[in-house]
């Protein structure tokens, strides 16, 4: 009996401790973001950068087909912005540790790695969702995007799941940032890979077979497809199977990222490469 009570209080303590670590992680990555970006520049890059990317693809599309198919690119690229927060934001908050030289302390501390890790991603999921809304907003304002057919709840769910799955990729990339000096270029490359493979700018069916295989293994692809279906008036049940797969991809990536983080931690401790950059 006593044993169980002790076990229970221990459990409670662990939960509350990990919750704290989680929110501290979220708070610090938020703070790091705003140390890096003051609110004005943050908004500018959040609002203006998406617009320029959208314009670029809408115009290539227009040049290619001679017709105006803006909605296709607007929806695709709006979801890409979720990936952008997921990848760049999360990488910065993990990689930032290395640049500030605090990584050895992070690895040295006894905090639960999982809570710490996911806490860091949390803010960027919110941030990523905001990015999608802004993208769609520009679409409505400038490119005659029509959301009147869309089921708002289903759209919101799609955006949430997609943002989650891309920040899973971000966690994975964040780990890479622990071993390279110039992670921004790597990130950019992954980002561009998503631009091609996710169907945001090229319909997946039009890609050669081997590229379709890659496309189907990546996060975002299914999210983009779901968003297009819903905005065209599709129902939640219609997209549910795809959405579940997207969620699964996100979970797998997060777990993978977590293990890579652990592996890197052990490796770094073994090889003593913690502060090499």
């Amino acid at each position: 009996m006593l044993h169980w009570i002790l076990w229970g209080t221990d459990m409670m303590e662990r939960i509350s401790r990990n919750t704290r670590i989680f929110f501290e992680g979220a708070f610090y990555s938020y703070k790091a973001l705003f140390r890096w970006l003051n609110p004005a520049t943050y908004l500018a890059s959040k609002v203006l950068a998406p617009l320029t990317i959208m314009i670029f693809f809408v115009f290539i599309g227009a040049y290619a087909s001679g017709s105006n198919n803006a909605s296709f690119y607007v929806i695709g690229n709006s979801l890409i912005f979720a990936a952008s927060s997921g990848i760049f934001g999360v990488t910065m908050s993990v990689g930032g540790e290395r640049w500030t030289g605090t990584l050895p302390y992070l690895f040295g501390c006894p905090a639960n790695r999982g809570a710490m890790f996911i806490g860091r991603a949390f803010m960027h999921i919110l941030d990523g969702m905001l990015g999608v809304f802004i993208g769609l907003g520009w679409g409505i304002l400038l490119f005659k995007l029509d959301l009147s057919q869309a089921n708002p709840l289903a759209l919101l769910l799609t955006i949430l799941v997609t943002t989650f799955s891309t920040s899973g990729l971000g966690l994975l990339m964040g780990c890479l940032s622990l071993i390279t000096r110039n992670v921004m270029l790597v990130n950019n490359t992954v980002y561009f890979a998503l631009l091609i493979f996710s169907g945001a700018n090229i319909p997946v069916e039009e890609l050669p077979a081997w590229m379709q295989v890659i496309a189907n293994g990546l996060p975002l692809t299914r999210g983009v497809a779901c968003a297009r279906t819903i905005i065209a008036g599709g129902s939640l049940t219609e997209i549910m199977p795809l959405l579940k797969e997207e969620l699964l991809i996100g979970i797998i990536l997060t777990i993978l990222g977590y293990f890579l983080f652990k592996v890197f931690e052990i490796q770094a401790k073994k090889l003593g490469t913690l502060d090499i950059f």
């Binding site: 270029l185 561009f192 631009l195 091609i196």
Partner: peptide, 25 residues
């Protein structure tokens, strides 16, 4: 830094691939 080379060399290849498909018509 292998990653820098990767970034410098691979990213434009990806853009090329994408543009190639987008402008296929």
């Amino acid at each position: 830094d292998g990653f820098v080379i990767f970034g410098i060399l691979i990213q434009p290849l990806l853009v090329a691939l994408m543009a190639l498909w987008m402008l296929k018509g």
